[in-house]
C-alpha cells in the first residue's frame, strides 16, 4: 500500500486538485513545500481563521507566499483563474466556502493547463467540483507516540484508483513520510510525554 504513494503524492502538475477534511490546511502546506516558486493563497476577506506564518514556516518559506483577499467567491475564483493562467505562480491555493459548479471547476482546470501551474482548492466536506483531478480527505489521527500522524485518503481520482495512507510529518527531513498500517507497525516503545 505504502509503495504507490509516490505515484499520487507529488500531485500531478498542470491540474487543479481538491482537499477537504480537518487537516486540509496541513495538506496544502505539504504540497506548497514541494513546489518551487511563489505560492498564492486566495481567500475571502471575511474569514476570521487565518494561517499563521510562524506555524507553517517548517513546511515552506513564508517569504514565497502571497495572499489575495477577495470580496466574495466570484472574486476568489476570478483571481485564482488569473493566477493559474499567468504561469507566474507555482501553486494557487483557493479557499472556497460555497460549492463550485462544473463550469467554474472546468475553467480553473483549463487555466491551470494553459498556465502550466497547479491549483489546490480547499473545500468544505462534500462541496467539491466534479472537474477536480483528485480530491483528498485529510484528517489528523491520535497516536500515543507521534503528534504529526494524519490519514490521507483519495476520495476522487480521475486517472487512478482510490487509496488511503497514514502519513507523518518528518520534522528533521521536512517532508511527508508514509507510515505502515497499524497492524504492520512495530509496537512503539516511546512513552507518551
Amino acid at each position: 500500500m505504502a509503495s504507490d504513494f509516490h505515484i499520487h503524492f507529488p500531485l500531478r502538475p498542470n491540474r487543479v486538485h481538491e482537499a477537504c477534511g480537518p487537516s486540509a490546511l496541513g495538506f496544502a502546506f505539504a504540497v506548497a513545500g514541494q513546489r518551487r516558486g511563489t505560492v498564492l493563497w486566495v481567500t475571502e476577506a471575511w474569514h476570521a481563521d487565518q494561517i499563521n506564518p510562524a506555524g507553517f514556516a517548517p513546511y515552506f518559506d513564508p517569504r514565497n507566499l502571497l495572499i489575495a483577499k477577495g470580496k466574495d467567491q466570484t472574486d476568489v475564483l476570478a483571481t485564482a483563474e488569473e493566477a493559474l493562467r499567468s504561469g507566474a505562480i507555482a501553486l494557487t491555493v483557493i479557499t472556497v466556502t460555497k460549492p463550485i459548479g462544473l463550469t467554474e471547476g472546468r475553467r480553473l482546470q483549463l487555466a491551470a493547463e494553459s498556465g502550466k501551474s497547479m491549483g489546490l482548492c480547499l473545500v468544505p466536506d462534500g462541496m467539491g467540483s466534479n472537474a477536480a483531478e483528485t480530491r483528498w480527505h485529510c484528517e489528523p489521527i491520535f497516536d500515543a507516540a507521534d503528534s504529526t500522524l494524519q490519514r490521507w485518503e483519495i476520495i476522487k481520482n480521475k486517472s487512478g484508483t482510490l487509496a488511503t495512507w497514514i502519513v507523518r510529518w518528518n520534522v528533521e527531513a521536512r517532508r511527508i513520510t508514509v507510515v505502515s498500517e497499524t497492524g504492520e507497525r512495530p509496537v512503539s516503545q516511546v512513552a507518551p510525554d
Binding site: 476577506a45 502571497l66 489575495a68 483577499k69 470580496k71 483571481t79
Partner: peptide, 14 residues
C-alpha cells in the same frame, strides 16, 4: 491585474 480587480491593498504578504 489581481490588484485592479480586488484592490491592490488586498494582495498581501507576511
Amino acid at each position: 491585474r489581481i490588484g485592479n480587480r480586488i484592490g491592490l491593498d488586498n494582495v498581501q504578504r507576511f
